[in-house]
């Protein structure tokens, strides 16, 4: 059973996806329009969500009689004092509170989570009964030492020490390779799901993404065809128009 409103939603999503993907062919007004729509929607959504948060977490408790909520509200308002000449000094009050609180709470936890626990995790036995564990532990310990030595910058990296740090550089490069590989994995996931959607695939998670249902999804290829005709016609009309010269001198 096809729901007309859901179908319109699915087609809107399909057209917007195709308008974005049209950039792969060439810069065009369809792409730019989607860009503006995205910026507008994001800003509007963020504003509305923040406003709702303010009402729920600040105003509602005050109206419910919890007057202590006035204190953070006033402190928050003081941030706007920086926009006036006369009272701009007042914004230092919430700022200094935020910095003091932030630093106090962060330093200990950063030291614990990122420094002490990580150092402890490199204190591994270098000879274990299992050969694979031994190799893994050796890679972690040697890799950590060599990589950190690469970032000791007060000494020129040449001679024996240079070869030592160069090995550290290779560990950094291997890490970058892993990051690049997984980035490709992630980017492919994005395009695969979009193609699944554009093909109206029944296996596309229609419900999990709240984009209609598989019933409406069967009609996505019509939107694909319609867009290709419109885009093809636009490109045909523009085929002889030379690109505008830059006005910059």
């Amino acid at each position: 059973m096809v729901d007309l409103f859901a179908l319109i939603g699915v087609w809107t999503a399909a057209f917007l996806t195709l308008m974005v993907l049209s950039f792969l062919y060439k810069e065009n007004p369809f792409y730019r329009l989607t860009e503006y729509v995205f910026v507008g929607l994001s800003s509007g959504y963020t504003f509305a969500a923040t406003l709702r948060l303010f009402v729920n977490q600040a105003l509602s408790p005050i109206f419910a009689g919890q007057l202590e909520f006035f204190v953070p509200l006033i402190l928050g308002l003081l941030f706007y004092a920086q926009f006036t000449k006369r009272y701009s000094i007042l914004y230092r009050v919430p700022l200094s509170l935020a910095i003091g609180y932030g630093l106090g709470i962060t330093i200990w936890s950063v030291l614990q989570a990122y420094f002490l626990r990580q150092i402890r995790a490199t204190m591994l036995p270098l000879f274990t009964g299992d050969i694979l564990t031994t190799i893994g532990n050796l890679v972690i310990v040697i890799g950590t030492i060599l990589t950190i030595s690469y970032f000791i910058l007060h000494r020129e990296q040449k001679g024996v020490y240079g070869r030592f740090t160069k090995a550290g550089k290779y560990f950094v490069l291997a890490t970058l390779g892993a990051v690049f590989g997984t980035t490709v994995l992630g980017r492919m996931a994005l395009i695969i799901q979009r193609i699944q959607f554009l093909l109206g695939d029944a296996a596309f998670p229609w419900r999990a993404l709240r984009i209609g249902t598989a019933d409406e999804g069967r009609f996505v290829p019509i939107a694909l065809l319609a867009f290709l005709i419109v885009f093809g016609f636009y490109m045909y009309r523009k085929r002889d128009v030379k690109p505008e010269k830059s006005t910059k001198t």
């Binding site: 989570a113 626990r117 402890r120 972690i140 990051v179 980035t183």
Partner: peptide, 26 residues
């Protein structure tokens, strides 16, 4: 985690600060 961040989270898995990581759609 999204795939691009996963290598950066592996040290936390090795140090047992996180119990496991789900990496991307896979």
């Amino acid at each position: 985690s999204v795939a691009a961040l996963a290598p950066g989270f592996m040290p936390f898995y090795n140090s047992q600060q996180i119990i496991g990581i789900l990496i991307s759609i896979r």
